[in-house]
Design a protein around this nucleic acid. Structure first.
Lengths: 140, 140
DNA sequence: GGAATAACCTATCAAACTACTATGTTAATA
DNA sequence: TATTAACATAGTAGTTTGATAGGTTATTCC
């Protein structure tokens, strides 16, 4: 399940995209508009900065800007940055211990396909799409 | 994310489907074949009985049988029974507190579509498909 | 240059959830 | 009636979630 980390990160990115007009957007303004604790957002946003999704500016007049235009930035990029990864089951996680039943595991294929589908879906939606309410999935 | 509850439930159902030949399948045999603790499976399987997916028989010669044929039983049925529901975000859960931002929530549509996609995918695969290794998603 | 500002960093914490184990009880059959 | 196998309930260590709190660093404006 997608936690508040990913959901809040997405709302932050959308808020920044909608409110930056030349000048960077203060996180305190995002927090106020989105009605999310500033302190909690300060915990979440470093993952977006490290992933190169937002650019930060310190001090007076500082804040955050998107590093690329909203039409190029995908929902999947934001979720992966915030959540770490989007693996639906433990055995597909990057750091998962190799399962010795994997070779004859009848269910592994189900999870792998779901994993693929999940990424394909979230990578098919750009932040611009979200702002415009253009959310529909055309498969593959 | 899908927990062991859902994953084990699926393996149990597949195991029963593959091993019942007229007579019911003992959970202890399933546990041995699947290398899962019997006691833990005894915790999980009541959700399948309550959902009407498996039929149980007490006492000597007892065990479990599927209530419908593997071609009619969908992976989604098993996962919903075991996991309770398959909501990807908290705000889509049945018992979720109504969010007062829902009306102008730009992200809600993303989660709803993902929810729909998730169900469509898992409901497109039958237990027979899993046994035969027929896992591919044709959308919509 | 110093005050204000805003990002950044670290620690803590209650509550919930996960993945079990343990100990029994009930129901059906041979 | 002994055996068997499902059913029921309680507990528990470890992890994750969703935060709060307090302090530090970097930048800009006056």
């Amino acid at each position: 399940m997608i936690s508040t980390k990913g959901r809040y990160a997405l709302r932050v990115v959308i808020d920044i995209a909608e409110n930056e007009n030349g000048s960077p957007v203060r996180l305190s303004d995002v927090a106020a508009r989105q009605e999310i604790s500033l302190k909690y957002l300060e915990l979440i946003i470093p993952s977006l900065t490290k992933a190169g999704i937002v650019l930060s500016a310190h001090g007076k007049g500082g804040g955050y800007r998107l590093s690329i235009t909203p039409d190029k930035l995908k929902v999947g990029d934001v979720l992966r940055a915030a959540e770490g990864e989007l693996a639906p089951v433990a055995c597909l996680k990057c750091d998962a211990a190799p399962c010795d039943r994997a070779d004859n595991c009848k269910t592994l294929g189900i999870w792998k396909e779901y994993y693929r589908l999940t990424h394909a879906y979230f990578d098919s939606i750009s932040i611009e799409d979200v702002i415009n309410g253009n959310i529909e999935f055309k498969n593959k």
